[in-house]
Simulated assay, not measured.
Amino acid sequence: MVNTCRLSKFGTDTMQDASLYRSTVGALQYATLTRPDIAYSVNKVCQFMPHPLESHWKAVKRILRYLKGTIHYGLLLQPSSSSPPFSLRAYSDADWATDQDDRRSTSGSCIFFGSNLISWGSKKQQLVARSSTEAEYRSMANTTAELLWIQSLLQELQVPFHTPTLLCDNISAVSLAHNPILHSRTKHIELDIHFVREKVLSKHLNVLHVPASDQLADPLTK
């Protein structure tokens, strides 16, 4: 979604046919199953289902026009050129306090098995983050949970893979995952910290820093 398009739930231009809005957005949710490029935009317009405004409907029509112009886009799944075990890596990102109504952050993640994108998501965080590090770490915790589920599925299918790698562009969040000391300013996210750090210490997860220019999850947050 264009950065200048800031949607709000407050307004007087109430959409008369709210059922049309809900049915169209519901159909767009199915499109995100093969179109990760619209995941953030669809997630955004889904937040206004109860009381859609005309400005929200304009955003929905903009998504539809984009899909019409890129109808040939899709997911490319291809055999791995390398022999097993295969790589399993995830990108985690967050856009801090961008919701102008409640200042909650948006989490974004994408997971690759080999060279193939197999999982992605864009979701508004449930709590207000007091810093960008907190927002990034919450996104890392959610991505770690998704990685663990995929890991257990691959193990059940007896598919060999390397230790999963989680990539984040926030240096402070990456350091927090490796630092065994809890500071007073991080106690409110203690559960997320222990969850990720436990996987790092047990060698079930590698957490590394990635430059912002190589952050593949960035389009899922804005």
Rank of each mutant, 00 (worst) to 15 (best):
L20F: 14
I181L: 06
H194E: 11
L147Q: 07
V42W: 05
K44G: 00
T98V: 13
P79Y: 04
R197K: 14
T12W: 01
Q78R: 14
T221H: 11
R65N: 06
A90E: 00
T34N: 07
I111N: 03
L67E: 05
P180Q: 10
L201W: 12
S172C: 07
S115G: 08
L127E: 14
K58Y: 12
P219D: 08
M140Q: 06
S55A: 15
R197M: 02
D218T: 06
A94S: 15
L208F: 06
S184Q: 15
K203L: 12
T12L: 13
I38N: 04
S109D: 09
Q215C: 03
Y91W: 01
L75N: 02
N170W: 07
T14A: 14
N142K: 12
F86H: 13
L216G: 01
C168T: 05
F161T: 02
V159Y: 06
Y73M: 14
H209K: 14
I189F: 04
T14K: 15
T70D: 08
V42L: 07
T12M: 06
T144L: 09
P36E: 06
L33W: 10
V159T: 14
R35Q: 11
H56W: 09
A18Q: 11
S152E: 14
L75F: 03
Q126D: 13
L75V: 08
S131C: 08
A173S: 15
V42Y: 01
C168I: 01
P79C: 02
E156V: 11
S131M: 07
E146G: 03
S175E: 08
Y66D: 00
F161P: 03
I111E: 06
W57I: 03
K61I: 12
L208S: 10
H51F: 11
F195D: 01
H183C: 09
P50S: 07
V207W: 05
I71T: 12
N142W: 07
A31Y: 10
R65M: 10
C46S: 04
T32D: 09
F48S: 00
